[in-house]
Amino acid sequence: MPGVVFIEPGGGRHAVAAPVGVTLMEAARQHGVEGILAQCGGAGACATCHVYVDPAWFDRLPPAEELETGMLETAWEPRANSRLSCQVTLTADLDGLTVTVPARQR
């Protein structure tokens, strides 16, 4: 199972392991990572699972589709390395991925 590290809004590191095929958001939510609200459960309808991807990893993720890009533009403090964690599916080669949870989701 790939291991992923979430840097929580308070600065704490929350390391979780999750099976290949689930999304980054699901991995966070099932383990109660702070600051990932994920209200719509991955439908791409709320932008409350926004994360900043470690720049070393950003280009290794499949690019965002149009709906996600549009929603990220109006998320809270978007950056060039912003993603909706519900749109990133875990694969074996994402083992070690590190993302930072913003201070707020809106």
């Binding site: 709906l67 549009g70 533009e73 109006t74 809106r106």
Partner: peptide
Amino acid sequence: VNHGKDYMAARK
């Protein structure tokens, strides 16, 4: 409908 950008802006 299929317009996340309008929707997100409208919320604010």
